[in-house]
Design a protein around this nucleic acid. Structure first.
Lengths: 145, 145
DNA sequence: CTGCATCCTCTAGTCACTAGAGGAGCAAGC
DNA sequence: GCTTGCTCCTCTAGTGACTAGAGGATGCAG
């Protein structure tokens, strides 16, 4: 009976770690679990289902605030689904952007490591390329500093 | 003369933000800058070059510890470059892995948003798919929770 | 001198967890 | 009943790479 599970069982069944479940409760993504006389949390099927939803959304790269919104939407079955769709589409665009950047970075690293490495640092393409930004093939990709 | 620059100029010329420069000095990636009588940091060409190296490596996704190591290597021109090459190759493999995962996630999101959205939450594929993990096309991609 | 921009240190926050200290509860085995 | 080992509890702080902002000092132009 999925109705009286300790947190360890809930973690095992949901794939979400014990401390992470506590964290989600703390930040309000999961309702506060009722406790037994020993003050231990007790979880039911609804909780497992919620955890699965969160886990799945995290895997898809949604941020917790987006997940919070998706959950709120899921609890209002009569509302229009445009908002959920927009969140997912934005996520899709974000992934596209990240892939594009990663592929550009990959190309540069491949160039760097091309032909292997047979000598010393003084002749090393990896160090050389990092040190000479004129050789940087992706100016404009500014995601840090 | 690139030999007596205040931090703001160094930031502008290197593309690394003022607080980030201070941060890099704090964590030892950048030597502590000499100060003028007003206790303001002064930077020279070598510093700008170092900042450029760090920035470029960050853009390529190297972690600061890896960058620390690459810098140490770059300061020993006679040493074998196998280590730098290995760091870069690992980064390449990491990017490949991330792209692969992102593409799998993209496929699932695309499926989710396919056909647009015309109704309510009760019929919403985004919410439906997140709620039903049997429909999850990428079991095994476990990068969170 | 005033005002504004730049610089300083320091503390704490961001995001999504994660680690661990110190203690309590629980159940099986003796 | 006692012991042992596992699970659970709260709380604090850490991770990585920054980032924000408070409160104050410096420098320069008007």
């Amino acid at each position: 009976m999925l109705d009286d599970l300790p947190i360890g069982r809930a973690a095992a069944l949901s794939g979400v770690k014990v401390p992470t479940i506590r964290y989600y409760e703390q930040i309000g993504l999961l309702r506060p679990a009722p406790r037994n006389e020993g003050n231990r949390r007790r979880y039911g099927a609804d909780d497992l289902s919620r955890l699965g939803f969160i886990r799945h959304a995290r895997q898809l790269g949604f941020e917790l605030d987006q997940i919070r919104e998706l959950i709120a939407l899921s609890e209002e079955p009569e509302s229009p689904c445009g908002r959920a769709d927009a969140i997912a589409r934005r996520q899709l665009a974000d992934i596209d952007d990240r892939v594009r950047r990663l592929l550009a970075l990959r190309a540069e690293l491949a160039r760097m490591t091309e032909g292997g490495c047979h000598g010393t640092i003084a002749e090393c393409r990896v160090i050389e390329v990092l040190a000479d930004h004129g050789k940087c093939a992706h100016h404009g990709v500014d995601e840090a500093a």
